[in-house]
Amino acid sequence: MVCWVHELDGVADRVLPAQRASLLARVDHFVAAGDWTARMLADRFGIARPLVTAVDEPIAEVPPRPVAASDAPAPVDVLGVGSLAARKGADAFVAVVALLAATRPHLRAAWIGAGDPAQRALVTADIAAAGLGGRLHLVGDRADLEPWWPHQGLLLHTAREDPFPLVAAEAGARGVPVVTWATGGAADLLARSGSAHLVAPAGDVIGLAQRAGALLDDPAARARAGAALRTEAAHLTTDHQAPVVWAACVGGPP
């Protein structure tokens, strides 16, 4: 039996039954969604490291850049993507954007993703209280992110816990730089791309705003970070990763 693990501790605690130890013992091999998840399995679930293969999550090929349509959204400088849940850190996203906007009067930001009405109400209250109405838009769910990628800006990933956020890899595949904090696989991805300096400690809103602000104010640095991440994300396509997952499942070389 092979178990492909896509969750970190918080979600795992919620979805796994209390008697998970007996279930884990029946698994022959684990495929972990990235190094961060592999560390959880080894360090906290007590799984022997040889039984764990870390495989970054696969992403789709990047489609050709669409010709800007007349109904395309106005470009944003800072994009956040994820369900409107505390785990995804939409509240922190608002706090970081508030600091960035204080000295950048033309900054525009958007969060794509829906959530439960109660959480949306809190984030909406934050946006209003921070004076960001009209500058930070809660867009809701969008089937197609392509029109929204901030090609002149950055992806701000503020999840409190996220094993391997696909959106960070997808941003990288498009050369969009990512700024995040050390709470999951996005930090590993940035470190491997040589951009560890774009990772702030968890919950360090000011540190995250400083890193994001430095990129926003320096197009060359932004381009370098985006290019480095594009290189790192190039091997994350499904065509590349699916054989790796399969090899981990059957125990042979990819």
């Binding site: 918080g10 961060w36 959880m40 505390a86 409190r160 816990e161 050390a182 709470t183 999951g184 968890a202």
Partner: peptide, 16 residues
């Protein structure tokens, strides 16, 4: 400590 959906990743350095 923050819990539930407000919990941070295990081992996160929160300076607190």
């Amino acid at each position: 400590a923050p819990s539930g959906s407000e919990a941070w990743a295990v081992g996160a350095d929160l300076a607190t």
